[in-house]
Design a protein around this nucleic acid. Structure first.
Length: 565
RNA sequence: CGGGGCGUGGCGCAGCUUGGUAGCGCGCUUGCUUUGGGAGCAAGAGGCCCCCGGUUCAAAUCCGGGCGCCCCGACCA
């Protein structure tokens, strides 16, 4: 490709609306343009990158026996009603009517549709197992699109679905996907972890996410450097330290205006770990008191798994339910559902007295009041790994892939069954597996970019070689550049020939911004020395090759750098 | 959905407090020069100042309403 013909509008300055590194650079390098909130146009260079990502995904999916197909984005609401998700999902699903007044939706995912297909076409255990996938547009009316291409309302997703006769088959396909995903992300040269994740409303028991560490990420994971335990903070567990507790023996303490953990621990001169935090939430219509130790925070997603959707109680509701103001509420004397974090099981604490201006000391949960115990706290950096007691690290990550064991969540309501060897009808056991190609590309930008611009991993770079012709007006230089360009292309090395009539500074700056792995410079120095200068984008390492052997030397250089080049 | 910020040539911004001529840098066009790190000189083009309404002799500027975009939080199948 010739830069003089390529549409790649680069920008000298960061766009005002961008915050994340990948967002800024993908706009500046002319990869994408924003149409509206969460809607992006992929320009030629951006599309080249996505296509490379997709190509790798296809190769590795095909390699585990998955078969590509394609399903509609526009879908009848009826199928979503059958699985109950039409009503469960709410505002995040785009809904519309066709001219005949039929309810339709724009697909946010394709479990319903693929299961509809399986229900019709799979009849016998002889038809199983199957793994089907597509790379297709999804639409979600996100509450808050953000960070450029990382969270958008319309996005592409590789989604695959496995169909098995039994749990063993599902486990096997799950493992195959883990293998494929590891290969895919390794080939792309990005850093990632596989972590345990919350299946959430996808249903099923087992789920993992593939996470690329990045400050621009929206999730956090807990990682154990010793045993490899890795989990999304939504469900990660830990062993918190145990303080020395005072003797049991409830007694009222006047705390006047001290409400927050900080104020109360300061006033009483005791560690926050000896206090109990109580939150009143409303689940449905029922009030629930959630309690964690004073030095801990509630992990909402863990609480939600016990009590479902909930919201904080209003000040009026708190007063009405407990008789006290926020800051003085506690479990003693409250006849509502109570859930205490399991770290409260062993100790003796100071809690709110349900009487404004007072706390109660010496409270032993489970003895001085009835409560359920469960893990509802958020893991903190430095707490002990639940498996090996090493110190946990917490990292911010971008979710680039996920895998779910669905079981019969979709096959049962949609009647996707098969006849087993004995002629008995059985529900098909399903799994579902996603990868977001745009997130993968953005994660690569986030992880590798330097102050000059993008540094693409070779596997997904828009071009392998950026060939800068310093003076296109000089016939000698042009002849050399054209020759090298033709040689590289004939060797299958994708090359961008920068033959634009712009100053050298612009060419070099754009080359660094675009981030192709290798930059080759042809200028008057090339004519003088008969050798070409080659610079690796990553680390900006310089090489020099003799003119005649340059093409093969460059190809070899690319070859040797492997996926991380 | 709660909180905050922003909306002025293609891009980045100033002007708004204190109403009266729309400005800067980059980019763009033409010519000449230049050519290994975002070139120089000269001459140009380009703006319903987000929209609607109000106040005023007069509104980019003040007031009301709306829309859009970004950030923090909630949500994220």
């Amino acid at each position: 490709m010739r830069a003089s013909k390529l549409f790649f509008p680069t920008l000298k300055e960061d766009p005002a609306e961008a915050e994340a590194i990948s967002h800024k650079l993908m706009i500046r390098a002319g990869l994408v343009r924003q149409l509206a909130a969460g809607l992006y146009i992929y320009l030629p260079l951006g599309l080249r990158v996505i296509n490379k990502v997709n190509k790798i995904i296809r190769e590795e999916m095909d390699a585990i026996g998955a078969q590509e197909l394609s399903m509609p984005v526009l879908q009848p609401a009826e199928i979503w009603r059958q699985t109950g998700r039409y009503d469960e999902i709410g505002e995040e699903m785009f809904r519309l009517k066709d001219r005949g007044g039929r309810d339709m939706v724009l697909g946010m995912t394709h479990e319903e549709i693929i299961t509809w297909l399986a229900a019709r076409e799979i009849r016998s255990y002889r038809d199983l197992p199957q793994v089907w996938y597509q790379i297709q547009t999804k639409l979600r009316d996100e509450a808050r699109p953000k960070s450029g291409v990382l969270r958008t309302r319309e996005f592409m997703m590789k989604d695959s679905y496995s169909f098995d006769a039994d749990e063993e088959g599902l486990a096997e396909n799950y493992q195959l996907h883990i293998k494929a995903y590891n290969r895919i992300f390794k080939r792309m040269g990005i850093d990632f972890y596989m972590v345990e994740s919350d299946p959430g409303m996808m249903g099923g028991a087992t789920a993992h996410e593939f996470m690329a560490p990045s400050a621009a990420g929206e999730d956090e994971v807990a990682l154990c450097p010793a045993c490899g335990y890795a989990a999304n903070l939504e469900l990660a567990g830990s062993e918190p330290h145990q303080p020395a507790y005072p003797p049991r023996g409830p007694m009222e303490i006047e705390t006047s205006d001290a409400r927050t953990i900080e104020q109360v621990s300061g006033l009483l001169d005791i560690s926050p770990a000896l206090l109990m935090k109580s939150f009143l939430v409303i689940a449905g219509k029922e009030p629930v008191l959630a309690m964690v130790r004073g030095d801990q925070e509630i992990q909402e997603s863990k609480l939600a798994r016990l009590i479902g959707d909930h919201r904080p109680a209003t000040p009026e509701e708190i007063k009405k339910t407990t008789g006290a103001e926020a800051g003085f509420i506690g479990p003693i004397g409250l006849e509502i559902r109570k859930i205490a974090d399991e770290t409260l099981k062993a100790g003796v604490f100071t809690a709110g007295a349900n009487k404004s201006g007072y706390h109660i000391g010496g409270v032993a949960p489970g003895q001085d009041f009835e409560t359920e115990f469960s893990d509802i706290r958020r893991v903190k950096e430095g707490e002990k790994c639940p498996h090996c007691n090493a110190s946990l690290k917490i990292e911010r990550v971008i979710e680039i892939g996920n895998i779910f064991q669905l079981g019969t969540k979709y096959s049962a309501p949609l009647g996707a069954t098969y006849l087993d060897e004995r002629g008995n009808e059985q529900p098909i056991i399903m799994g579902s597996y996603g990868i977001g190609p745009a997130r993968v590309a953005a994660a690569a930008v986030e992880q590798l970019a330097d102050e000059k611009g993008i540094v693409w991993p070779a596997a997904i770079a828009p071009f392998a070689v950026h060939l800068a012709l310093v003076q296109p007006a000089d016939s000698g230089q042009t002849a050399l550049a054209e020759k090298l360009y033709a040689e590289l292309m004939s060797m299958g090395v994708e090359t961008l020939l920068d033959d634009r009539a712009v100053s050298p500074g612009v060419k070099f700056a754009d080359a660094e911004l675009l981030g192709c792995p290798v930059r080759v410079t042809i200028g008057k120095r090339t004519l003088a020395s008969s050798s070409v200068e080659v610079q690796l984008r990553r680390g900006r390492e310089e090489h020099s090759f003799e003119l005649g052997a340059a093409a093969s030397a460059i190809a070899e250089l690319l070859e040797n750098r492997g996926p991380d080049a």
